[in-house]
Nucleic acid binder design. Sequence first.
DNA 1: AAGGGATGCTCAT
DNA 2: TGAGCCTCCCTTT
Length: 272
Amino acid sequence: MPEGHTIHRLAAEHQRVFGGRVVAAASPQGRFAEGAGRLDGRVMAAADAHGKHLLLRFDDDQVLHVHLGIYGTCRFGPVPAPAPVGAVRLRLTGEAGHADLRGPNACELLGPGEAKALHDRLGPDPLRADADPDRAWRRISRTRTSVAVLLMDQSVVAGPGNIYRAEVLYRQGIDPRLPGRCLARAQWAAVWDDLRLLMAEGVRTGRIDTVRPEHTPEAMGRPPRVDDHGGEVYVYRRAGQGCLVCGTQVRTVEVAARNLFWCPGCQPTAVR
DNA sequence: AAGGGATGCTCAT
DNA sequence: TGAGCCTCCCTTT
């Protein structure tokens, strides 16, 4: 589930439900018992997201840092909250609702200095107003590492995951295997702007839709199609199928333990 | 009912 | 490079 847009939605929901309110904290599963004990009864001051990291600041300036990883989930429900089901690492309960966190990669308390260090090690997040895309460009423009790997490196850009990576490179016509230093500055600017656009829409809708109106099956005179991850995309998980635009077979290859998808027809290798 | 894959990342080797 | 995390959802049986 979680690419950056999901975490920004979660931050907004935490703010809406718990912002400025006293919360009860408990760790029914037990693995965060000590941290929950320290949070219990405090006021949640502010919820924030940077990339895929959720940061909840409490009134004693402790910051709860949550990273869902590939398994983690966070679900909200009403109060009074029912008895927790399964391995709930952390349950927060306030007067307006409760939230259950399961299977997170990280759930820990950070001091203010540690929270700053976390922000500092993350690259610019297209969903954050304070993001500086030039910081990413400095890394990208100097390395032989492929843009496919760079876009998944959270210290380069924070927030995009495997779907946004594949889709933004498709939309910009860039071969994912292109070395960062072979990317033109204007191409990076276009990728950044498109990530901002796509991810902001993802925050609004809660899904990842990347297909332009002129390429929808309806516009192309083809039968309607539903991707199995709840959004409309060009290449993600469409290996072996024909490209929606040019018909070329979508290719896939495993890169750094992740499946990469692209269309060789629409994303030709640039000759530079 | 059982099994596999996943939108992520860290750590050990 | 591979294991581990240890949930959810989809597919297969």
